[in-house]
Design a protein around this nucleic acid. Structure first.
Lengths: 167, 167
DNA sequence: GCTACATCGTTAGTCGGACGAACGCAACAG
DNA sequence: CTGTTGCGTTCGTCCGACTAACGATGTAGC
C-alpha cells in the first residue's frame, strides 16, 4: 500500500497545485515556456508595429543578402504561402524592395532597404530587452547553457528530420 | 567598412542557412523545440488513442484525488471550456467517472477508475519513451539541467503572472 | 426570506499560426 | 516541342488557446 493510494483520500489544497509528474515533463515545460515567450515577443514587437516574422526576414536579408521569396522561405522557416503577406507588410513600410529578377522572370528579388536596416537594428534592441525579461531569473552562464542545450536538441531533431522541417 | 556590409555581396549558399542571429534567440529555440516536442508527443500518444490532456487530467486525479471540473481546470491548466470535451472522451473510455456532487449540485465530481489508473501507468511508460527520444542527444545530467532551468524560468513567469496563467 | 453576487458546467464562436492544394507562369532538360 | 520542376500567389483547412454568454445553483448581506 505504499505505491498505490498515493492520494485517494487527501483533503489537500489540491485545488491549484499542478502535479509534479506534469511539471517535470520536459515537453510540458517547453510548451509552457514557448507560450510565455511567444506572448512576450509578440506583444513587445507589436509596440514597434512589427511581428517576429518581420525580424526573421530582415535578419536573413542582412546576413545573407538579397534572395527570392522561396529562398527566404527556406532560410527563415516561414511557409511560402505566408511569406507573401509578410513581404507585403514589409514592403508597405518601405523596409524591403520587391523587384522581378531579370535573370529568372519567375522570381522576385527581395532586397533590404536602408530604412529596413535601421528598423532591424531597432528590432534587435527590442528583442534583446525582451530576452532579458524572458531569461531574467538566469545568470549569463545559465542562459548560455540553456541556449546551448536547446540548440543541440533542435539540431538533432532537424537533421534526419522525420518530419517536414519547422526551422 | 568592417561593421556594416556584413553580407551585401556574398554569392554564398545562403539558400538554406538560417542566420545565426535567429538561431541563437532563446525565443526561437523554444518555439522550435516546443513544436517538435508537441508533434512527437501528439503522434506518440495518438498511437495509444490518447492526447496529452488526457494524461494531465489522469495524473492530476491520481495525485490529488477526485475533484470538480473547475478544480481540474486549475490543476492542469486546461480551460474549463475545453475540459468538457476531454472528460467526455475519458468517460467514454471508462477511464474516469463523472457524478453529480451531492453537496453542491452545480458540480460534477470526477473520479479516476481502476481502468483509468492502468491507462495512466501505460501513458507514463509511453511518455517516458517519447521523452527519451526527445532528449536523446543529452546526457542524464544535461537533461536535469534543462528541466531545472526551464522550471525556474516557468516558475518565475507564472508567479506575478502579468498574463492569465497558461500552466 | 429576499436580493445581489459568485461559481459551475456547457455551448458556441473568435483568433491566430501552421500547413496543404492547386493554379498560372516561366525555366529547363530531353 | 514536351514533360517536369520551381516560383509566387490565392484560398482553404485544421488545431489549439482563448472569450462570451447562459442556465442552474450556491452563498452572503440585510
Amino acid at each position: 500500500m505504499s505505491s498505490r493510494a498515493e492520494a485517494a483520500d487527501m483533503p489537500y489544497d489540491g485545488e491549484t497545485q499542478t502535479p509534479e509528474r506534469l511539471r517535470r515533463r520536459a515537453s510540458r515545460l517547453l510548451s509552457g515556456m514557448s507560450a510565455r515567450s511567444d506572448r512576450l515577443m509578440n506583444e513587445g514587437l507589436a509596440q514597434v508595429d512589427a511581428r517576429k516574422w518581420h525580424y526573421a526576414v530582415l535578419a536573413s536579408l542582412q546576413e545573407y543578402g538579397p534572395g527570392s521569396q522561396a529562398t527566404l522561405s527556406r532560410r527563415t522557416g516561414i511557409y511560402r504561402s505566408d511569406m507573401v503577406g509578410v513581404l507585403n507588410e514589409l514592403a508597405e513600410h518601405g523596409l524591403v524592395e520587391r523587384m522581378p529578377d531579370p535573370d529568372d522572370r519567375r522570381r522576385n528579388v527581395i532586397t533590404i532597404t536602408a530604412q529596413g536596416r535601421r528598423h532591424l537594428r531597432r528590432l534587435d534592441k527590442v528583442l534583446d530587452d525582451l530576452h532579458d525579461e524572458l531569461l531574467a531569473p538566469l545568470t549569463p552562464a545559465e542562459r548560455d547553457q540553456l541556449v546551448h542545450l536547446l540548440t543541440r536538441l533542435l539540431d538533432h531533431h532537424t537533421q534526419q528530420a522525420p518530419h517536414p522541417p519547422t526551422s
